[in-house]
Design a protein around this nucleic acid. Structure first.
Lengths: 194, 194
DNA sequence: TCAGGATGCGGACTGCCGGTCCGCTTCGAT
DNA sequence: ATCGAAGCGGACCGGCAGTCCGCATCCTGA
């Protein structure tokens, strides 16, 4: 990649962040982003392919640290720790990420409304959570993949905003944690069908 | 309302259904709907206010029978039955509704992406599920409102389609049921924090 | 250093869409 | 039959995602 291309790529990402911070997820047209980055629209599309691509890449950037953490042994997040702890720690981190990036989450959701299940970041999260649920409760009568989707549904931007509006991240964390614990507990002792 | 207004209203709703059935949730522009209904665009907007209003009304129509059922005593759905049974029965019905109206669910989601928590039908469902969870497990350490959102997240059109693609409604039903039961069980015996 | 091909740039342009507007038509109460 | 109110329709507007191509910039090889 040519040096000006690299520079422009960065300028576009930073401009997107600025606009998100300034105006929320609304009214962020790609014309605006390009203008704010001091770049032509063609450049934006050349780099990111589409609106979807832009927000996917921005999210991937913001989620990179977390992606690394879940692969690095040595913390409650990483390999080696008990799956229940890894799950809780991961969800806590996701709460923090959601709080710091609410506008990005919202914009990303909108942009990826089509095939949201093909976003690389979401796929990574989903695979991770599925594996942890399956590891924590292999005997449960729970569909781990499905449960993982449901759990990650907690980070829908509107839902998260709604919950945090009254209680902040703390409330979101405890609500998500409650959900996760209930899931794992419940799965361990499936209710008998009547 | 004048008789021609009533007739047009109906024509628009039926045309929307036809287009949803024929083309899925994609490419349903309001111009197309109006044309298919044999009506001017102005008429459509006069009746429904916006794209959002159109899909909200169509969903409300499709959900009317269920709304009635949950208020009518005499079945597992209605008042009088144990909350666990009411919840399971309600979720089962929602699965059926989702199967029969996948395209509508998808279009509705898109159209109501903003303030999805202000849609009357969703609000009714959410209030119902919240009340049932609270009734079934008053002692649980679970945030009933939040859990209800998570549970209803199962009916996200993309998720439902994904699950039903491999196993049909039966799989969706059992996955949702498993989730609900796990939630209620888990909430009954909250895991001790370490 | 410099020349020239490869890479990238930018913004005018296209097609589409949600929503508005207003002169004209139709309805139905009297 | 009359007439005001209610409703109609489609041209019109502003805005947006994505395309295209003539021109500028980069950087490599000599």
């Amino acid at each position: 990649m040519r040096s000006d291309a690299t520079r422009n790529r960065e300028a576009i990402l930073r401009a997107t962040e600025e606009l998100l911070a300034a105006h929320g997820a609304e009214h962020i047209s790609l014309d605006r982003v390009a203008a704010a980055a001091g770049v032509g629209k063609g450049t934006l599309f050349r780099r990111f392919g589409s609106r979807t691509g832009l927000f996917q890449e921005l999210l991937a950037e913001r989620a990179a640290a977390l992606a690394l953490a879940i692969e690095t042994p040595g913390s409650a997040l990483g390999p080696g720790a008990p799956p229940e702890d890894r799950l809780t720690a991961f969800l806590d981190e996701l709460c923090e990420l959601a709080e710091r990036n609410l506008a990005l989450f919202a914009a990303h959701e909108r942009a990826c409304a089509e095939d949201k299940y093909r976003d690389p970041t979401y796929l990574r999260w989903h695979a991770h959570v599925t594996a942890l649920i399956a590891a924590a409760r292999p005997e449960g009568g729970l569909d781990a993949e499905f449960a993982a989707h449901a759990l990650l549904g907690s980070f829908d931007a509107d839902l998260a905003r709604h919950v945090m509006a009254d209680g902040g991240v703390a409330r979101l964390k405890s609500a998500v944690r409650g959900l996760a614990e209930a899931l794992l507990e419940g799965a361990a002792t499936p209710r008998t069908r009547r």
